[in-house]
Design a protein around this nucleic acid. Structure first.
Lengths: 157, 157
DNA sequence: ATTTATTAAATTGAATCCAATTCAATTGAC
DNA sequence: GTCAATTGAATTGGATTCAATTTAATAAAT
């Protein structure tokens, strides 16, 4: 079995390759949506959406970062981030401040409230993982995360 | 190492659990978005979006299905499907027909054009998998799909 | 120095998605 | 048979996302 992937694929009929359950994209898409849905009841009480949550996760690790770098970290562009960050500023969790050295840059920093939210959010990852009834012996969350990161880097070069 | 997951989690500091790269949701979310982006150049020439593509995949497997069952298959609700299916009808790929036995049901069936599109789409899965430079020895697309399906079922009960 | 190119954010427009509600048809309870 | 509950689609409203464009600031080229 030392044929390469391409050769291997040519031995699989197109009909099989077109089945919904054989699409990597569909499996990712469904898992992503469904797991994000699971966060909702945990985030709602904090007034957070999924996107504002991951933005805070990024800022709790690295504060005072410009929109470009934040977007690079979160795989989001300014079209998504600008309105989100404006809302988060209104909510009082972050400040947006244009750089004086280079006025093209807008730096995002946490407010006291934004930083304090970390405490309240600290139970979320545990709650979430525990809410997923992983089978014994089945690859657990950590294993899957690792595979996905490998995939993520493979996809995005 | 026969402690359960919950006990294990309690030995990991909250700070570690709150890191962006340790979130299962974020890894899924990024992989999902990035891989869907990779489809765009393949789908654009056929006039398909990602959502209409997976809808056709479902219909090529099972034609003449009502909106509810289609939604169940695709993990989408009528709020998403109704406008999508109307557009796909306008494009000439499907027909929507209200059932006479039970007028609450709308059945979706492929037109000749919709069925014929399957030929043109048949190269897409191969093109896509080949466009991802999987490392030797790394889990390949098929392995990941399998893990994700397990996860999908675990998440959605 | 002036012009050109590049960069970072912001804006615009289209598509997607979900949650909640509405509406019509059907089923069930009595 | 009538009223209430349920069901399947459709609708509405809000949020998210990306692609493409615009604007302003800076850097580079000549």
């Amino acid at each position: 079995m030392d044929e390469n992937l391409e050769t291997m694929l040519n031995h699989i009929p197109s009909d099989e390759l077109l089945k919904l359950d054989n699409q990597l994209c569909f499996a990712l898409y469904v898992c992503s949506k469904e797991i994000i849905r699971k966060y909702k009841p945990l985030l709602d009480p904090l007034g957070l959406t999924y996107t504002s949550y991951i933005t805070l996760l990024a800022l709790w690790e690295e504060d005072n970062i410009n929109v470009k770098d934040l977007g690079h970290r979160l795989y989001l562009d300014s079209g998504t981030l600008t309105p989100l960050l404006k809302k988060m500023e209104t909510s009082g969790w972050i400040k947006r401040k244009r750089s004086v050295e280079d006025e093209r840059n807008v730096f995002i920093s946490l407010t006291e409230e934004g930083f304090a939210l970390k405490e309240k959010a600290s139970s979320i990852p545990r709650s979430l993982i525990c809410s997923i009834p992983f089978e014994q012996g089945e690859g657990n969350a950590f294993d899957i995360i690792q595979s996905l990161h490998q995939l993520m880097h493979t996809i995005t070069e």
